[in-house]
């Protein structure tokens, strides 16, 4: 599904190097968790996967289903099945949530050569996904994310993910800001999407999310590099011991 090879990237504007040789492979159907201290480059990696222009890849490559995506713009990547659930979803005043969802869904379908959804079919899907995630439909009458609480924004991201049915789901700290019940609801939503053809890159600081969404692999990103890879027990170890030992080992 995803092969990141010796990826080096810097902030396009001022040149600070943030990723310093990331190597990471995610297989079809795999759930890979990425952990790591604040500022280690997790969000940067997720943005680069989604194609944000603020970052410049200086070395290495990202292969998605065997092909480099570096030349693709964010919309093309999305249409090919890459989805990023943002750590901080943006509020976009003036853009109605429903218009946005429908435009996005149909743009992706069109890019893939599929027919656009009829309005009733679209409404049916939104209603059903919203119900699964216990999102009040009235919220969707508002402009995109405007006035949503922190947790509501996170849930709305997962709603988008469920509707767009991506192949590679990158979730950046989806658990932060969610209350205990919401965490469970969101995790159920994610687990319902699990399939042999869909992979997840779950960025998190906490074991709690991984109790619900059990990862196949756990990777520690530190100073722009993966310094340790293990199975779900690695996350438990980190929870108990913190990062210092692993960082020392790597050094």
């Amino acid at each position: 599904m995803l092969e990141i090879k010796n990826l080096h990237a810097r902030v396009a504007e001022e040149g600070t190097e943030i990723l310093r040789g990331v190597d990471l492979t995610v297989k079809d159907g795999e759930i890979a968790a990425i952990m790591g201290p604040n500022g280690s480059g997790k969000s940067t990696l997720s943005y680069i996967l989604a194609g944000r222009e603020d970052y410049e890849v200086t070395e290495g490559d990202i292969l998605y289903n065997g092909e480099s995506i570096l030349e693709m713009d964010p919309a093309e990547r999305a249409a090919s099945g890459i989805f990023l659930a943002f750590q901080y979803p943006l509020e976009i005043p003036g853009v109605a949530t429903m218009t946005f969802l429908k435009t996005a869904l149909n743009a992706q379908r069109k890019a893939r050569g599929e027919d656009e959804l009829t309005t009733p079919e679209f409404m049916r899907r939104v209603k059903s996904s919203a119900a699964d995630l216990q999102i009040n439909p009235d919220m969707l009458k508002r402009p995109l994310n405007v006035g949503f609480s922190g947790g509501e924004k996170k849930r709305a991201e997962i709603l988008q993910m469920a509707l767009l049915e991506p192949k590679l789901c990158v979730m950046d700290e989806t658990d932060s800001g969610l209350d205990i019940d919401a965490l469970k609801i969101v995790a159920d939503g994610v687990n319902a999407l699990r399939s042999a053809e869909r992979s997840f890159l779950v960025i998190t600081h906490y074991q709690r999310l991984l109790d619900y969404i059990v990862p196949d692999t756990v990777h520690v990103l530190y100073k722009g590099r993966i310094i340790k890879t293990g199975d779900k027990d690695l996350a438990l170890k980190l929870e108990n011991e913190g990062y210092s030992q692993i960082i020392d080992e790597a050094a």
Binding site: R52, P74, A78, F83, L84, T103, L105
Partner: peptide, 11 residues
């Protein structure tokens, strides 16, 4: 904002 919309597949 542009990035957010495009990341959902809107050209």
């Amino acid at each position: 904002h542009l990035f957010y919309l495009m990341s959902r597949g809107i050209p």
